[in-house]
Computed example of a mutant assay.
Amino acid sequence: MGIQHVGEIAVWASARDGNADAFAELFDLHRDRVFRHALRLVRSQHDAEDITAAAFLELWRRRDAVRVVEDSVIAWLLVTTNNVARNVSRSRSRHQALIDRLPRGMYQGEGAFDAVDAHIDAEHRETTMRGALAQLSIADQNVITLCVVEELGAAEAAAALGIPIGTVKSRLSRAKARLARLAGDARAAVSTTGGAL
């Protein structure tokens, strides 16, 4: 019996009780949406796949603490995706910092990586927005994700985040303004230097 027949909340109740088949149904229902969101946050499809898997692992691992909004776990999954993506980015930054400290010639393939990076960075608009979004606090990322990207209402976002509706509205207003400023600063830097982000 699929989700369309019994509703997500009933399937979630079964999954929460440890039913792996019910959890698999939830995965099938939400994986594409979670993956698309992860891909907005990171550069590579491989990383987005890993982040998607980690978000669902957290859903299973923390199933007794998941906040359900409008009879769905999607808002919780999207917020968790933001958190996992941020952890991946931090880890990658630490790794890159280590590589940057190594003397040139100690590692191979630098030219290949530069070529891949140049190809990815050619899409300035997407890269600019991804970078600007990454500079927001996790609280601002969450409200942008839920209200702008996923187009949830303020009440749904408030329920998902466990904060008052007024806080969602004021945070959303500030987050949009900061995102626009960061994206504008990044575009200005690119046009000034003539290079990619």
Results as ranks from 00 to 15, higher is better:
Asp17Tyr: 06
Ala154Leu: 11
Leu197Cys: 06
Ile3Asp: 09
Asp17Gly: 11
Leu152Gly: 00
Gly184Gln: 12
Phe27Thr: 05
Asn19Ala: 08
Asp117Tyr: 11
Ile51Ala: 09
Glu126Ala: 10
Arg61Tyr: 01
Phe23Glu: 10
Asp32Arg: 14
Thr81Asp: 04
Ala48Ile: 06
Gly7Thr: 11
Arg33Leu: 07
Val34Thr: 07
Val68Leu: 09
Glu110Ile: 15
Phe56Glu: 00
Gly194Thr: 06
Gly162Arg: 00
Tyr107Leu: 14
Asn87Val: 06
Tyr107Asn: 06
Val73Gln: 07
Ser44Leu: 10
Lys176Pro: 03
Gly153Ile: 00
Pro103Tyr: 07
Ala175Asp: 05
Leu179Cys: 04
Val148Ala: 08
Glu110Ala: 08
Ile51Gly: 04
Ala97Leu: 07
Ala183Asn: 00
Ala20Ile: 04
Arg90Thr: 15
Glu151Thr: 10
Thr192Pro: 04
His46Ala: 15
Ala54Ser: 14
Gly109Val: 00
Arg67Pro: 06
Pro103Thr: 02
Ala65Pro: 11
Leu182His: 04
Phe113Lys: 15
Asp114Trp: 01
Ala196Thr: 13
Leu133His: 07
His5Phe: 15
Gly166Asp: 04
Thr193Phe: 03
Ile51Cys: 00
Ile51Lys: 09
Leu172Pro: 02
Thr192Ile: 08
Glu151Leu: 02
Asp64His: 09
Leu26Ala: 01
Leu98Gln: 08
Gly18Lys: 05
Ile74Asp: 09
Ala75Pro: 00
Gln96Asn: 14
Ala183Cys: 03
Cys147Leu: 02
Leu152Arg: 10
Val34Glu: 05
Arg187Glu: 10
Leu78Ile: 04
Leu182Arg: 11
Ile138Cys: 07
Ala188Cys: 01
Gln96Arg: 15
Ala188Ser: 11
Ala13Val: 08
Arg187Asn: 15
Leu26Val: 11
Asp185Thr: 14
Val149His: 07
Leu57Gln: 13
Val66Asp: 06
Lys176Asp: 07
Val11Gln: 02
Thr145Asn: 05
Arg63Ile: 01
Ala196Phe: 13
Ala183His: 03
Tyr107Gln: 12
Gln108Thr: 15
Asn19Lys: 05
Pro103His: 12
Ser91Ile: 03
Thr192Arg: 13
Asp50Leu: 06
Asp140Trp: 03
Leu39Thr: 01
Ile51Met: 07
Cys147Met: 03
Met129Ile: 14
Asn142Ser: 14
Asp28Val: 14
Glu156Asn: 07
Val11His: 11
His95Ala: 13
Asp17Phe: 03
Val42Lys: 11
Glu25Phe: 13
Met129Leu: 15
Leu146Ser: 01
Arg43Ile: 10
Gln4Pro: 00
Asp100His: 05
His37Asp: 11
Asp71Asn: 09
Ala180Gly: 05
Arg16Phe: 02
Ala53His: 13
Ser173Trp: 04
Val66Arg: 12
Asp50Arg: 12
Asp17Glu: 15
Gly184Glu: 13
Trp12Cys: 12
Asp17Arg: 02
Ala189Val: 03
Val168Tyr: 05
